[in-house]
């Protein structure tokens, strides 16, 4: 009996740990793997719940994506494409220390075609 309780408790704890791990690494909407990789490298550092930058989280928090209204999602998707295309994001001062986080032109295209597709979907088109 004791054994059973212990093993149940252990598996419950393991499950919780596993869950929090899974939720941490899989935020937001329908993101193709390649785009998710880009976002992970260049964006999630500041734009997720664990970020220490309040400003970045207020502007866009991928962990809160599901709480956003559709209108806000559309606005955010278009803004994502805009700021990376204009090199406003990732911020220059952040890239100084981590130049590998800069987006290549191909990566920008990949992100923008994803944001455009998602926004179009939300608008009710296909």
């Amino acid at each position: 009996m004791k054994k059973l309780i212990v093993s149940l408790a252990v598996s419950a704890i393991l499950l919780l740990v596993f869950q929090s791990f899974v939720f941490k690494t899989a935020p937001a909407p329908d993101i193709p793997a390649d785009v998710n990789e880009i976002l992970k490298t260049s964006c999630y550092g500041c734009h997720t719940q664990e970020s220490s930058s309040k400003k970045a989280k207020i502007a866009l928090n991928f962990d809160k994506w599901d709480d956003y209204k559709d209108t806000k999602k559309i606005s955010k998707l278009d803004a994502i494409c805009e700021v990376i295309s204009k090199d406003k994001m990732p911020p220059e001062k952040y890239l100084k220390d981590s130049p590998e986080k800069a987006l290549s032109d191909d990566q920008k295209v990949a992100v923008c075609s994803w944001t455009d597709k998602e926004a179009t979907k939300l608008m009710g088109g296909n």
Partner: peptide, 18 residues
């Protein structure tokens, strides 16, 4: 475009609120 209008309006509230 309608989509830009939506983005614009959503941004208005956000920037004013913050």
């Amino acid at each position: 475009e309608k989509r830009k209008m939506i983005s614009g309006l959503s941004g208005v509230c956000e920037l004013i609120e913050s």
